[in-house]
Design a protein around this nucleic acid. Structure first.
Lengths: 199, 199
DNA sequence: GTGTAAAATCGAATGGGTTCGAGATTAAGA
DNA sequence: TCTTAATCTCGAACCCATTCGATTTTACAC
C-alpha cells in the first residue's frame, strides 16, 4: 500500500535532491553544506541522513540527473553514415564540453565516476548505457565495412573510452588547455587506433 | 646563509612527512588525522599548516615518495629488445600492481594524480618522467623498425597511458577483478593500437 | 479508538580539518 | 647589545560532516 509514509518519504527525498541541485549549481559541491541543503529543503539537517548516508551520495544523484540531461542531447541517428571517427568525436566532444563546462563540477564528477568510493550498481547501469551507444556506432561501422570484425565490440568501446579518459586527465592536469586542442588530439588518437601504429 | 631558521624549517617539514608516511601506511589517509601526524612528529597540529595548506598536500608529497620508490624498480635496460608490447605490459603492470596493492590508497592517489585539485608543476615533472620512459621504449621500437615513424612519440605515449588509465578505471568501477584479467585486457588493447582496427 | 512497534525527525554532541590571534623565536641592522 | 620586523608555533575557536538519543509520527493489529 502506497501509504502516507511512502509518499512523504519520496517527496522528501525529491525535495532534498532539488535543493541540492539548486545549491550545487549556484555555489558548488564543496561550498554547499548539508545544513544549507536542509534549510533550502525546509527540514532539519539530520533528517537528510535518513535518505543519504554521505554527502557524496547526494552528489551522485545529482550527477545522475546531469548525465541524463547530457545523454538526452545525444541523438542516436542510425541513418548517420559518416565515418566512425567523426561520429565518435561528436559523441565524446559533447560529453567533454558538458563535463568540463564547470571545471570544478567536472573534476568532482569525474573523480566519482572513474574512481568511485565503492563499486556501485547504479554507476554500472550508466556505464552500460554509455557502452551500448559506442558498440552501436562500432557495429554500424563494421556493417559498412569500415572496421574489422576481428575485434570484440566491448574491447573497442573500452579503447575509445580510455582515450576519452586520457583527454579528460590531460585537461585536469593542464596539458590540454583549449577545446580545439582537445578535439585535435582526440582525432589524432582515434586515427591511431584505426590505422594502427605498427610497421 | 642557511641560518638556523632554514635548517629547522626543512627539518620540521621532513619530520611531518615522515610521520605522515608512517601513519598513512599503518592506517590510511582517511583514518590519520592531522592531530595524529602532529603528535607523531612532536609538534602542535596548527604548526603543520605552516608547511602544508591542506591535508591533501601531505598526501601529495607522500605519493611522490611512493612513486619514486615505484620508479626505482623500473630498470631502463636499453638492451632489452623484446617486442614493444611486452615491454609496455611489464612497465604498466608494475605500476598497476603497485598502485592497487592497497585499494584505498590507490584510489586516493589516482584521484589526486588524474584529477588534481589544481594544476601543479611538481605533478608535471612526474608525468614528464613517466612519458620520457614511454617515449624511450617507442623510439627503440621505431629504431628496430617495429613501429611506424609517422606518429609523434608524445601522442603515442599519451595513447598507451590512456589505455592504462582505462584499465585503472575498470578496476575501480568493478569491471576488472583480477590482475590476470587486467593483463589480458591490456594485451588486447595494446595489440589493437599496434595493428589498428581498421578494415 | 487504543496500544505498540517501526520509522522519521531533529536538537545536541562528536570529531576532524582549518583559521585566528597572541606569544615566542630568529634575522639583521644600529 | 638592543630593537624591530618577520617568521614560527600552538591553544582556542570555527565550520562542517556525521552520529546519538530522545521525541514524534505513522502503520497496523486488536
Amino acid at each position: 500500500m502506497a501509504g502516507i509514509r511512502e509518499q512523504k518519504k519520496s517527496e522528501t527525498k525529491r525535495a532534498i535532491l532539488a535543493a541540492a541541485v539548486k545549491l550545487f549549481a549556484e555555489k558548488s559541491f564543496d561550498k554547499t553544506s548539508i545544513e544549507d541543503i536542509a534549510k533550502e529543503a525546509g527540514i532539519g539537517k539530520t533528517t537528510i541522513y535518513g535518505y543519504y548516508n554521505k554527502k557524496n551520495e547526494i552528489f551522485h544523484d545529482f550527477c545522475d540527473e546531469e548525465l541524463d540531461l547530457a545523454f538526452s542531447k545525444l541523438k542516436p541517428s542510425d541513418c548517420d553514415d559518416r565515418p566512425l571517427t567523426e561520429k565518435l568525436i561528436d559523441f565524446f566532444m559533447i560529453q567533454f564540453v558538458f563535463v568540463t563546462k564547470n571545471r570544478e563540477f567536472g573534476r568532482q564528477m569525474s573523480r566519482e565516476m572513474v574512481f568511485p568510493c565503492e563499486i556501485n550498481d547504479k554507476a554500472k547501469i550508466h556505464d552500460q548505457r554509455y557502452f551500448d551507444i559506442l558498440e552501436n556506432y562500432i557495429a554500424a561501422a563494421q556493417n559498412r565495412g569500415e572496421v574489422s570484425t576481428k575485434h570484440d565490440h566491448f574491447n573497442m568501446s573500452v579503447h575509445f573510452f580510455s582515450l576519452y579518459l586520457g583527454l579528460l586527465a590531460g585537461w585536469y592536469t593542464g596539458y590540454l588547455e583549449s577545446l580545439s586542442q582537445v578535439e585535435e588530439t582526440m582525432r589524432t588518437l582515434f586515427t591511431q587506433v584505426l590505422k594502427g601504429i605498427e610497421k
